[in-house]
Structures are given as structure tokens and as C-alpha cells.
Design a protein around this nucleic acid. Structure first.
Length: 398
DNA sequence: CCTCCACTGGAAACCTAGGCTC
DNA sequence: GAGCCTAGGTTTCCAGTGGAGG
């Protein structure tokens, strides 16, 4: 349906489609070939190879920053393994613990992939774990459990469950449970119980960030498939690679940038993606990021930002608190203490929405010098979307 | 060199809400 | 369905502080 609408609009603007296969540039796409990851693919394959003889491979930890190909490599090798093996008891389960949210939901998802129905709520963690293990044992399932963002799981909920899993293997023969942990955080090992670490980290692979040259090559390969012929310039690709390269070699970001640049070019009715589109795309991503950050902020943080925005030339904590107080009263919302507001100002500083530097003014005390880092227009525009703010953003200088 | 402002930021108690447990 | 637990947000309390003005 939307295809029809798209084509109508496109014809109306007299422009033409640049994408041949846009999904090749979507974040969840796994290509058939992963350049510059041969080493990692080989190691993962070697570690998992014993599975084909029915024996338990070593547990595996994959480390690396976002966009270095960890998840892609894991999914790639596992799909090969599944198609290579003719063992019906081989089961691969994938869970991203940050997206699943809670420990319970991560385990429930895992259980579902094993074919064990788990109620939405009501069971204890221990009960879910033992149901999973019972399934593996009674059916003799050879299980490979990919735990993506395992650092999140451990940080939020501890490593007790992982300990149970790693310890259980003697009891569940002829089946086994193998764990592949994927972590963005290189220091994540420190939060782990040494017993869990020694078992989980039997094999470790580190994924280095991509270099700019590598990003360029990756983007080029994707662009050849994603776009129609001559619908992109080499210099646009280079620019994408360079821009993402300075952001710690994040391939996902590079690919996103290229896709959005393509969308910009299409919307503008251009014949090809050029440097200008990439710059525009980068600005759009930044703008979207800020709007998204604003939207997802808790109410109190929004009010505080609004209070800060009323001072053209920056303000100190006391002044912001007074202004915040007035707005809150007018809106009829709860009023937080100054201590808390001070803390929230520090949080907003971390998010890069404002700057809150601690300065000393001698006899006139010590405070934070607070300055908005985003445009006032973006702020009021985004806040006005929310009905509660509509009256507040109108007469902003009252 | 000392004072003393207007806070900062640590620590602990308190308060929910949501999810789990029985 | 009532009760329990936990995490995260908030309040309360307070010792600490950089440096302009004396």
C-alpha cells in the first residue's frame, strides 16, 4: 500500500527512485559476507565445530564496542552451523537482554525458543531455570544460547542465573547448554563472579573497531547492492566512512548514515547521493537524536530544561531552581528539592543537552554555571507536542 | 592570609510501583 | 489476591570547598 503512495508522490515530484534494495542498509540486515571479520568468524567456527559431532563446545565471550560486528558474526556462524548440522536436537536461541528488559523476560524468551511455554508472569526465576534445564535433559537437546548485551544482564540483575547455567552441564547430559555471551563493555568481566568467568570465558574474542578504510569498503559493497547503478558517488561513501570512523569505527552508524543520505537524496529528487546529502543526513540524525532524547526525558527533567531555557545568558543553580519552582506551581506538578534539581542538572549535562560547570564566585559562593546546549526552538517545539506543556511554552518569558 | 557565600555532592533513610511469590 | 522484594527516584542531612573581598 505504502509503495503505491510512495510512487505517486515520487512521480508527482518528477524524481526517480535511487534504492534498489533499501533493506540492505537496515540495521537488522545480516549480509552473506562479512568483510574484515574472517579471523573472528574462523575462531567462532572452530570453537563451535565440536557441536557437529554432538559434543559440547566451549563457552564463548565476544567483546567489542557497538557496531563492530559481534552480533552479525555470531548470527552468521550459527546460521551456517544450523544448516550444516542434521541433528534435530540442535537448538539455537538468541536473546538480547537489554531489549528483553528484565531477567525474567530474557529467560522466558529463551524458554520459548526451546519450545517450553512460560507464563507471562507468576513463576520464580529458579522455576523457569529448572524448566529450561529439564527440557534440555529430557529431550537431550544440544543448546546454544546467545546472550546479547550480557553486560546489561549482569549489571542489572547479577550473574546468579549464569552461574546456574554454567554449573548445570554435568546434570543435563546427554543434552548440553552452551553460552555465547556478547558484551559491549570491555570491563564487564570485573562484575563477574570468578567461578562464572572461568567457565563463561573459556574462549574470548575481541572485535576491534573498523578503520576508516574498512568502513569505506563495507559501505561500498553494501551500496552496490542497495542502490541502483550510478545512484551514489564514491566521495559520498568516503565521507560516510570518515564521519563514522571518527565515532569509534561504528559500522552500524556508517550504514545508517548512508541509508538516510539516500532517503534525503530521493526526497530531494536528485539523481545520485552526493556529499551534500551525507552532511544533511548527519545533521538530521543529530537532530533526531536530540528530539528523541528530549521526548524520552522524565517530566521533571523537561520542566527543568524549560526553566533553563528562560535564561538567555546562562544562570546558576539557585536562579534555575526559582524559575523551575514557578513553572511547576503554574503547571500544578510536584516540586522537587533543590538537591534533586542539582542532581538532574548534572544528568542533563551528561546527556549533552546542557552544560553545567561547577564554578566558584568567591564571596558569592560556589554553584553551577548552566547553559543550554540545544536550540530553544527545538526544545519548545518538542515539548509543545505534550499537552501539559502547551500553555507553558506560549508566554515563555512571563 | 582569613572569611564566608551558595552552593556541591556523598550517604542514608524513605517512598513507591511493579513484578514476583505463595 | 494479599503480601513480599527490589530498584529507582527522591528527600533529608550535612560536611566540604574555591576564591573574591576584606
Amino acid at each position: 500500500m505504502s509503495d503505491i503512495v510512495d510512487s505517486i508522490f515520487r512521480r508527482a515530484k518528477g524524481s526517480k527512485a535511487l534504492f534498489a534494495k533499501r533493506n540492505v542498509l537496515m540495521p537488522e540486515y545480516v549480509p552473506d559476507h562479512l568483510p574484515f571479520r574472517d579471523q573472528q568468524i574462523q575462531t567462532v567456527a572452530q570453537v563451535l565445530a565440536p557441536t557437529l559431532h554432538g559434543s559440547k563446545p566451549s563457552n564463548l565471550l565476544l567483546y567489542g564496542k557497538t557496531g563492530t560486528g559481534k552480533t552479525a558474526v555470531a548470527k552468521y556462524v550459527l546460521s551456517k552451523l544450523e544448516s550444516e548440522s542434521n541433528d534435530p536436537t540442535l537448538t539455537v536461541a538468541y536473546v538480547n537482554t537489554r531489549i528483553a528488559g528484565t531477567e525474567y523476560r530474557s529467560l522466558a524468551e529463551f524458554a520459548q525458543s526451546l519450545g517450553v511455554p512460560i507464563p507471562f508472569t507468576g513463576l520464580s526465576i529458579g522455576e523457569v531455570v529448572s524448566r529450561i534445564l529439564r527440557e534440555i535433559q529430557t529431550k537431550g537437546k544440544k543448546t546454544i544460547f546467545v546472550v546479547d548485551e550480557i553486560d546489561y544482564l549482569v549489571k542489572e540483575h547479577g550473574d546468579d542465573v549464569l552461574y546456574e547455567f554454567t554449573r548445570a552441564n554435568e546434570r543435563i547430559s546427554p543434552g548440553f547448554l552452551n553460552i555465547i555471551g556478547i558484551s559491549n563493555d570491555l570491563k564487564f568481566k570485573e562484575d563477574l563472579d570468578p567461578r562464572v568467568l572461568s567457565s563463561l570465558g573459556e574462549e574470548e574474542i575481541v572485535f576491534p573497531p573498523y578503520t576508516v578504510e574498512e568502513l569505506r569498503e563495507i559501505l561500498h559493497q553494501r551500496a552496490m547492492v542497495a542502490f541502483k547503478e550510478a545512484a551514489f558517488s564514491q566521495s559520498a561513501i568516503n565521507l560516510c566512512a570518515a564521519m563514522a570512523g571518527t565515532e569509534h569505527g561504528d559500522a552500524r552508524r556508517a550504514v545508517d548514515l548512508l541509508r538516510i543520505a539516500g532517503e534525503v537524496a530521493e526526497r530531494e529528487g536528485l539523481n545520485a547521493v552526493d556529499d551534500e546529502c551525507v552532511k544533511r543526513a548527519s545533521a538530521k540524525m543529530e537532530h533526531d537524536r536530540i528530539e528523541e532524547a528530549l521526548r524520552s526525558l522524565p517530566l521533571q527533567n523537561k520542566i527543568i530544561l524549560l526553566a533553563v531555557s528562560r535564561f538567555e545568558n546562562g544562570a546558576n543553580t539557585g536562579e534555575v531552581y526559582l524559575s523551575y519552582n514557578a513553572i511547576s506551581k503554574k503547571m500544578g506538578t510536584e516540586v522537587l528539592t533543590q538537591r534533586r534539581v542539582s542532581g538532574i542538572l548534572a544528568e542533563l549535562d551528561m546527556l549533552g543537552l546542557l552544560e553545567a560547570a561547577v564554578v566558584s564566585k568567591g564571596r558569592r559562593g560556589r554553584t553551577k554555571r548552566i547553559r543550554l546546549l540545544i536550540s530553544k526552538e527545538t526544545l519548545t517545539k518538542t515539548l509543545t507536542e505534550e499537552a501539559t506543556f502547551a500553555p507553558m511554552t506560549q508566554e515563555a518569558t512571563a
